[in-house]
């Protein structure tokens, strides 16, 4: 719509950052897959590396695709990121807790 015109124009050059981000995401995913299947590290090491790679990839996504640096209003960004972190922690930690069948807490 009308207000979007300027934005579309400023983006009309070739989207290199998207291509680089896309390539990096694929490389990081394949790397995680290789470490999981073929590296022969201990389970703990594999988990630490894979989670680390996931965090790197999340950062790439936020920077290259989600325009995190382009907003004028940083309070909205901080709010959404905090909420997203809350949901992620609730879902991941909650699932581990629930699926351990409370064995560590009995």
């Amino acid at each position: 719509m009308a207000s979007n015109n300027e934005q579309t124009n400023s983006h009309s050059h070739f989207p290199w950052s998207h291509v680089v981000g896309f390539g990096l995401s694929i490389v990081l995913t394949l790397l995680a897959l290789w470490i999981g299947f073929y590296s022969g590290f201990s389970l703990t090491t594999i988990m630490v590396i894979v989670v680390g790679l996931a965090l790197v990839q999340a950062t790439i996504q936020l920077l290259m695709f989600m325009h995190i640096t382009e907003s004028e209003d940083s309070s909205v960004q901080v709010g959404t990121i905090l909420y997203a972190v809350f949901i992620a922690v609730a879902v991941v930690a909650g699932t581990i807790w629930v699926m351990s069948f409370g064995m560590h807490y009995m």
């Binding site: 909420y83 949901i87 609730a90 909650g94 629930v98 699926m99 069948f101 409370g102 807490y105 009995m106």
Partner: peptide, 20 residues
């Protein structure tokens, strides 16, 4: 916020333990 913190009540009988 809370709607993401209640899901286990659909399967209390799974037996996840007293704390959960």
């Amino acid at each position: 916020g809370l709607s993401f913190l209640v899901w286990v009540h659909h399967f209390f009988t799974m037996g996840a333990g007293g704390a959960v």
